[in-house]
Design a protein around this nucleic acid. Structure first.
Lengths: 197, 197
DNA sequence: GTTTTATTAGACAGAGCTGTCTAATCTTGA
DNA sequence: TCAAGATTAGACAGCTCTGTCTAATAAAAC
């Protein structure tokens, strides 16, 4: 067996550019609305280049989500390590980092939540990619909260995750970034209540 | 000027059947994925019947959302009045009612959140219909909470609304109806904290 | 009973969609 | 140098989409 050519999934300039362009258009307009011809025209690439790197549009969408997930996770880890060891400061840093997303003028909701909305079937590879991302996010929160002296970090992490999900959705629906502040206030109140017990 | 024929927007059997069929298919598969031909085939109606009652697919979607909103609101009001005057019981009844939605085997997330995901532009009539619905829901919560002796019901209502939105999204993403219980627990904790102050 | 309205089936336009195929060209590594 | 892979433009198939139009029929109103 000869050496494979560039295996699908490996990072190459064209592949990365395709993902970046698709990511931007999907996020702005939606996954079904944006066709591959639109992506290719915007990226100035030929159709066969896309189908050389991805077997289908769906595979491209999954790649987009996985790249978004990886970047988001890196960003969070960076912000958390910069925040130092104090659990409370780390939690606040977690919310501060979200502030950047919400107040960005390109903010258009959560790319993952919107992907689930368009691919409601839990069996769909797109939906599955979102599950992986969101589970990791909850795990991050859980680890973060384990530093605080709360009896059970897991349920608390889930509750705070709900607040963040709600803030993402509500900020998008109403075009009101201040929902994040509500979520943060509620999260701090929940932490306080969990500590008092 | 002669009398108008049946004005658009008036309830007629065919129109209602169209909305009911469209509502079911949109909720199951998504707004962009489901075409009008599919709806018409399922409803066993002709295309011109649709365009007699609605100017466009978008108008049909708005009608679907408005009907869902009206029914949801009626349901909540009924449940709340059955719960009696106790604010705490009313809040629990509010969550009990959600329990029914989440544990339904047809549960597929929130039709309104998914509509915003597919129509991210806040100017879109579809998005605007969702805003009207979600605002009314927050108002209901606010009124409900004003019975409790909390200093500011408004921020608390917004926080609990975030929990509910988060539970809707997370239950759909993970296919896990138990997220609602997390939201309810958090909501009760927030109420308790707000009362202690 | 007659006129208006509602509904039907189906063709149709015009556009868009994903994915395939070809044939030529560019790039790169052995 | 040369062979293999990567990329290109574009045509193309086959299907789907929304919305319009026609012509005929059914239902309802007066």
């Amino acid at each position: 067996m000869p050496d494979q050519p560039t295996p699908r999934g490996d990072s190459t300039p064209k592949r990365d550019h395709l993902i970046a362009t698709a990511s931007r258009l999907f996020y702005r307009d939606g996954y079904h609305v944006v066709g591959i011809d639109t992506i290719l025209a915007e990226a100035k690439l030929a159709k066969m280049t896309l189908y050389h790197h991805f077997a289908s549009k769906e595979e491209l969408i999954v790649a987009v989500l996985e790249q978004r997930s990886a970047r988001a996770n890196e960003k969070v880890q960076t912000v958390l390590s910069e925040a130092g060891p104090s659990p409370r400061k780390r939690l606040l840093a977690y919310f501060d980092r979200l502030e950047g997303l919400f107040s960005n003028k390109e903010f258009n909701g959560c790319a993952f939540i919107r992907a689930v909305a368009e691919y409601p079937d839990i069996q769909s590879p797109v939906h599955q990619a979102v599950i992986r991302h969101k589970q990791r996010d909850i795990d991050t929160l859980k680890e973060l909260l384990s530093g605080l002296d709360v009896a059970e970090p897991e349920p608390l992490a889930r509750q705070i995750a709900l607040l963040v999900e709600g803030a993402l959705v509500s900020a998008h629906t109403f075009g009101d970034a201040s929902r994040l502040a509500s979520a943060r206030d509620a999260a701090l109140a929940l932490v306080k209540a969990a500590q008092k017990t």
